[in-house]
Design a protein around this nucleic acid. Structure first.
Lengths: 342, 342
DNA sequence: TTATAACATGCAATCGGTTGCGCAATTGAT
DNA sequence: ATCAATTGCGCAACCGATTGCATGTTATAA
């Protein structure tokens, strides 16, 4: 078989005794080409098993029909879902998606942006890493004149569109719920990093306490990296307090799970003695015993919405697009870990 | 700022009064260029904020430095981890990765392959969808002369390299373990689809029973799509048997979880009355109560290994590469759900 | 019948790097 | 001092598709 790849429009042209220009126009359904010719071209293309070379087209057009996605890590349920949502929308529009992971490293984030720009992606969708404090590398994206849309972990230091959930509201609802369940000494796990989502959740926690006349106690707020092990440590720390908490709201489901383990190991009943709530509605939360109260972030929807905003902006092109800020409403998922009154 | 993107090697050449050829060679560290010139070029490149256009290079070289990955779905923990592993290796080699989802649809799988080929990826790594029965679309990849490597859900109907775990062995170990725990009437959840991994696990189940002199009972093998809800239904079905099972080995962690829920709802003690085991070591399995016994598939390792095999093949190029079949050893993770003897 | 419009296709440049070949200049050996 | 070897760089074609402009042909109008 001579089909060693590489059948080009020139081969089709030669076969039909016409020029590559005509073939190109025929394949693109250009009205200036007769139907007869078009049909002949299509037929020849099938016969020769022609495969368009998007790279050549991309070079000529300056569009690659590929968009880049940057996430801290691709195997975390939340990000995986968002990516899936983006991909669904992108595919429908005939765009492909390149996924890169920043591993929450500032350095890697810069490299990744470099790589994507060199790959000539038509735009970038990103969620900022935990350790990113300056945003010059993101500004390079704007300078290249291609759209940038941020989701979830965003920043107001960049004038770009953002899609996120209302972390403040989500946290507020959780704490309000815990209070309504009769809890009055509520612990909180948060991150030491200056990341907006954790700041907002902390703010929601503080405001909810305030609005219900519950004093804020710094002792009850524990900072960590919010992984499972961190949650275990944080919980142990809270248990050493003379005045123990009767509830814990963790900014992460994993840390909440760690807390649950420690509580169970200490034979402390959940939710009777300590009510528990996480954040993110990671799939595992419904499988724990007791099932974990948490906040759903509608990750798939966020992905789709982000993609929509992105493509809207892509279509708009140069015309100064006004950055939009889309804030999705989170949903409190009440499960057994916090349900005292049945 | 005139940096409206598009600084090319020609701009650098002009600035230095040399030609684009020299700039190109300098940037690629070609030995035929003097160090003086190289330094000047690098300096000018920084100054002008030059961003190489990989698309142009890709067109000329016939390599895009992008590889395509096809997975049924990107947000399942297992696939997300494999992808992560592949990406780590790829990035180290300066390759980018395009992720496409087939959603287990034969049709979508074909479209996806089309799209990737058009994007001129340098090769494809894939896991076959559940509903794929013919493989002509995969053969097109070989015909294009680019490498194809399959992982996990593979087939012997294609002469390509494959990386998988020993599903047979994993299943055998699980069942052997259950038997050693004193179980003798062991149910099994499997898929009706003709997918190798499920076939192999079933085979392991059957052989283990046989080797330990336990009769095979068709009634105990339930076929379903293996999702959570399916697991619930399957468990309910098994509970209607006059002679109930004293253990269940599910080919999926999710279905095992469904079974666990039903058992708990029926106040049937795990593992005392019914021992339970899943397959995949999905992150949630360590969070259930009791924690679920399962089989680890080393997804990250599988991803890395797959990428290694892939790049090995990519480097080999045309030279008839002999397809390798790499079978990783799975690990039985024994947890409370099956541990009767403590 | 002739001028004009409408139509179908060809020509050639272009996108931005890459590379085989060639030429000039410098170096070294005899 | 002479010739070959080495070094450093330019020329121009090329990768494959796209597109403004030109050309040739046929149909319509005057």
């Amino acid at each position: 078989m001579q089909s060693k790849s590489k059948v080009t429009i020139h081969d089709i042209a030669e076969k039909l005794n016409i020029t590559a220009s005509t073939v190109s126009r025929a394949l693109n359904d250009n009205p200036r080409i007769s139907d007869v010719t078009k049909k002949a071209v299509l037929k020849a293309a099938k016969q020769l098993n022609y495969q368009p070379n998007n790279i050549a087209a991309a070079l000529r057009n300056g569009k690659s029909y590929i968009i880049g996605i940057i996430v801290p890590t691709a195997d975390r349920s939340f990000f995986a879902s968002v990516v899936r949502g983006i991909e669904e929308v992108a595919n429908k529009l005939n765009y492909k998606v390149i996924i890169s992971q920043s591993y929450d490293s500032h350095e890697k984030e810069i490299q990744t942006i470099d790589a994507l720009l060199s790959a000539r992606v038509d735009g970038i969708i990103a969620s900022i890493g935990k350790n990113t404090e300056s945003f010059d590398h993101y500004k390079r994206i704007e300078r290249e004149g291609i759209p940038l849309v941020l989701f979830d972990r965003t920043t107001d230091l960049l004038e770009v569109s953002q899609v996120m959930i209302d972390d403040y509201l989500g946290a507020y609802k959780v704490v309000e719920h815990l209070i309504q369940q009769g809890c009055s000494r509520i612990g909180h796990f948060t991150s030491p990093k200056n990341v907006s989502i954790f700041r907002e959740r902390l703010r929601g926690y503080v405001d909810a306490l305030k609005n219900y006349g519950i004093p804020y106690d710094e002792e009850l707020v524990v900072k960590s990296n919010l992984q499972l092990e961190d949650g275990r440590e944080s919980m142990k720390q809270l248990l050493t307090l003379r005045d123990r908490p009767d509830a814990v709201f963790s900014s992460s489901d994993f840390a909440a799970m760690g807390a649950m383990q420690v509580l169970k190991e200490n034979k402390i009943r959940i939710p009777e003695e300590v009510a528990l709530a996480g954040f993110s509605n990671d799939p595992f939360t419904s499988f724990t015993d007791p099932a974990l109260t948490t906040v759903d972030q509608f990750s798939l929807t966020m992905g789709k919405k982000t993609a929509e905003v992105f493509f809207e902006q892509l279509r708009a092109g140069k015309k100064e697009v006004v950055p939009q800020k889309i804030v999705l409403k989170p949903e409190l998922i009440i499960r057994e870990s916090s349900l005292r009154k049945k």
